[in-house]
Design a protein around this nucleic acid. Structure first.
Length: 104
DNA sequence: TGAGTGACTGTAA
DNA sequence: CTTACAGCCACTC
């Protein structure tokens, strides 16, 4: 049976604008489950090709999932979209942050 | 069934 | 401001 939460995660991540970033907890909260952040990570672990999971970071702006993308792939994707990454962290993370509750 | 692990977060110090 | 701890859910062995 399809997992609706996973689908909702994918749909929301697809809505993240190019060059913007978001966090697992915010996505979980936007879907009505503030404490399912770890589940969001598992959902993104399925990693469908049409889901820009590289725009999803942890709350510190750290590229938690870079290891799952491959060596340097996640950072390279972010850099190509204009998001500068230094020491596995997004520069101006707060400024680039995309809040689905407000900008949806 | 229970223990361990992980792409997390909020709060306390 | 950073670091440390506890809580949270799902999956695997």
């Amino acid at each position: 049976m399809p997992d609706q939460f996973y689908q909702d995660v994918y749909d929301l991540v697809k809505l993240i604008p190019k060059g913007r970033v978001c966090s697992y907890g915010v996505i979980a909260r936007a879907l009505g489950h503030p404490q399912w952040s770890r589940r969001v990570g598992y959902a993104l672990n399925q990693c469908p090709p049409d889901v820009p999971a590289h725009r999803v970071l942890n709350r510190k702006g750290l590229l938690s999932g870079k290891h799952h993308f491959g060596e340097g792939i996640m950072q390279q994707l972010l850099e190509s979209e204009g998001v500068k990454v230094v020491d596995d962290q997004a520069v101006d993370f707060e400024q680039l942050f995309w809040n689905p509750d407000i900008e949806i």
